[in-house]
């Protein structure tokens, strides 16, 4: 989504104001002259300044440009589903991996994203299973990344090499 430069400028100004607002409550501890609020204050001021200039320059084209420009994909429902499938897959992973284990979750993530891209389940499920098993073997079993085992936990001793 492309927005007009005035809005880009306002976005940076808003972040700058939030930073300064938060930093104002940070008091220097003990005898320090500059406290934890000093850098956020400087950065926030900089953001307001630069955001202001961007917004001002954007005013020149405010009449001729639309406030925002929707990308091509967002005109179809399918485009939205595809776009959202990535953050949704990550969210799904974060939510269920501890309970379901990496193996099962990775299969689900694969199948979900593949299905959204139009790959039929009869191909998506085996592809997901193979990928998940290979990743588990490499990262959990050999490289000892502490990926959750989920239901396999009781036998995970045999699966660590």
């Amino acid at each position: 989504m492309k927005v007009q430069d005035v809005l880009v400028g306002l976005f940076f100004i808003a972040i700058g104001i939030l930073m300064i607002e938060y930093a104002a409550d940070l008091k220097p501890p003990r005898h320090l002259k500059f406290g934890p609020g000093f850098f956020p204050l400087i950065i926030g001021s900089g953001l307001i300044l630069v955001g202001g200039i961007i917004a001002l320059l954007g005013l020149r084209t405010l009449r001729t440009e639309p406030l925002w420009h929707r990308p091509e994909w967002s005109r179809t429902r399918q485009g939205w589903v595809r776009f959202c499938s990535i953050p949704a897959a990550i969210a799904l992973y974060v939510l269920i991996v501890d309970a379901a284990g990496f193996l099962l979750t990775a299969i689900l993530v694969m199948v979900l994203v593949l299905a959204v891209s139009g790959v039929p389940l009869r191909r998506g499920v085996p592809a997901g299973a193979v990928t998940a098993v290979v990743l588990t073997a490499i990262f959990a079993s050999v490289l000892h990344v502490p990926l959750p085992w989920g239901p396999l936990q009781t036998i995970s001793g045999w699966l660590l090499w």
Partner: peptide, 27 residues
């Protein structure tokens, strides 16, 4: 201008967490 804004934004994100001197939590 947008490059400088991005730089400042990155610097801003880097202040999240414990401040490096006193350890005070920020943001």
């Amino acid at each position: 201008l947008k490059g400088v804004a991005a730089l400042l934004f990155g610097l801003g994100l880097s202040t999240i967490g414990m401040d490096p001197v006193s350890g005070t939590p920020r943001f």
